[in-house]
């Protein structure tokens, strides 16, 4: 694969692929009309987000890089899962066991950074009385 340079859309338009392996220019209006391209073909690949994380880190923002790496993990989960994880982390929504289940789900899906975030939340939510 060619060297990836920011902005990817400018330097690596043909190299970057969606989760289903499509390049941007393979997402065509004609194929959408023909029904051979769906919304799922426009999902960003986790590796792309990790590459963006490296750019962010080089740009001096490690927190943004962390966020993009967590995003890379969530990229492989469904919309419903993502909405459910977020909801569960809101205050007073979940028991410790429920949060642990979510952390386990995340870990099972290679979402170790997100899982770590949930484990951290469990500790602080317990300490500050935010457990349902």
């Amino acid at each position: 694969m060619a060297e990836l340079r920011y902005p990817l859309g400018e330097h690596n338009r043909a190299d970057v692929r969606s989760q289903t392996g499509k390049s941007a220019d393979e997402l065509t209006v004609a194929d959408i009309r023909a029904g051979t391209i769906t919304a799922a073909d426009a999902a960003v690949d986790p590796d792309t987000l990790r590459r963006q994380a490296e750019f962010a880190e080089r740009g001096g923002n490690p927190q943004l890089a962390d966020n993009l790496r967590r995003g890379a993990e969530l990229a492989l989960f469904s919309d419903d899962d993502v909405l459910r994880f977020y909801d569960a982390l809101r205050p007073g929504r979940s028991s410790v066991a429920e949060l642990q289940t979510i952390a386990a789900e995340l870990e099972a899906g290679a979402g170790t950074r997100c899982a770590a975030l949930v484990h951290e939340a469990i500790a602080h939510y317990t300490r500050r009385g935010l457990i349902s």
Partner: peptide, 8 residues
Amino acid sequence: LFGDHLQT
């Protein structure tokens, strides 16, 4: 697909 607009 590129995520370029996720940068600062």
